[in-house]
């Protein structure tokens, strides 16, 4: 039977590449989907659709390159182009504004100055997850990709289709917002500044 997919791989090769290089990343891809959608069923649909597209367009994957990053990029595009529209995710951040902020004196954040003693170390479990979930999607993505999945800036830039400089500034900004949120939580627990760094 003729394959429905345009390919120079045989059906057998296609299946082998898919199973050996794509499927081992299923947990990470699902975790990413869940972290951007907060919904197990939607995440499952998103992962299924992304894997289907990966299989369909397997010829555009260069063997020997990072399959995980390639899958994440497909999922991100799928999410942005389809799922987010369908689920009416809140509007995107104005990056011109963010970049202007980052390049300004205001970026010598009063938050970072107050946080020398790391009060957010006291924040735990759900509070950390809630703080991440409350970030705008574009900030949340860089935190997940960098701090949970360990992608390099270069890989993140490819996944997100943005310049490396934007990855760095977005990450910096996302972390500052997170610090602020976790500091508020620490204060709500009655945290007071320590005398010395641990």
């Amino acid at each position: 039977m003729e394959s429905e997919f345009d390919t120079h791989f045989s059906e057998e090769e296609r299946t082998r590449i898919f199973e050996e290089e794509m499927l081992p990343h299923l947990d990470s891809v699902y975790n990413f989907a869940f972290r951007v959608t907060y919904d197990e069923e939607i995440a499952k649909d998103l992962v299924q659709e992304s894997y289907y597209r990966a299989y369909k367009f397997l010829d555009s994957f260069q063997r020997g390159t990072n399959a995980k990053a390639w899958l994440f990029r497909i999922l991100k595009n799928n999410f942005i182009n389809d799922f987010r529209k369908r689920n009416r995710e809140p509007s995107m951040v104005d990056y011109q504004e963010v970049e202007s902020y980052y390049n300004s004196d205001k970026a010598k954040s009063p938050v970072s100055g107050k946080l020398k003693q790391e009060p957010f170390r006291h924040a735990i479990g759900d509070e950390v997850t809630n703080a991440i979930n409350s970030l705008d999607i574009d900030f949340r993505m860089v935190i997940i990709l960098c701090d949970l999945e360990g992608f390099t800036y270069e890989e993140m830039a490819k996944i997100l289709d943005i310049p490396i400089g934007t990855v760095r500034s977005r990450l910096h900004r996302a972390r500052n917002i997170l610090k602020g949120k976790l500091m508020q939580y620490a204060k709500s627990l009655g945290y007071k500044k320590k005398k010395k760094d641990e």
Binding site: L23, Y30, N31, Q48, Y51, G125, V128, I132, L148
Partner: peptide, 22 residues
Amino acid sequence: LKDIIRENVEKKKAPADLLDTI
């Protein structure tokens, strides 16, 4: 902050039936 995220944010595993569904 990185340590806190790594230590406290659960990495969700794919549901058992997802692999077969794909």
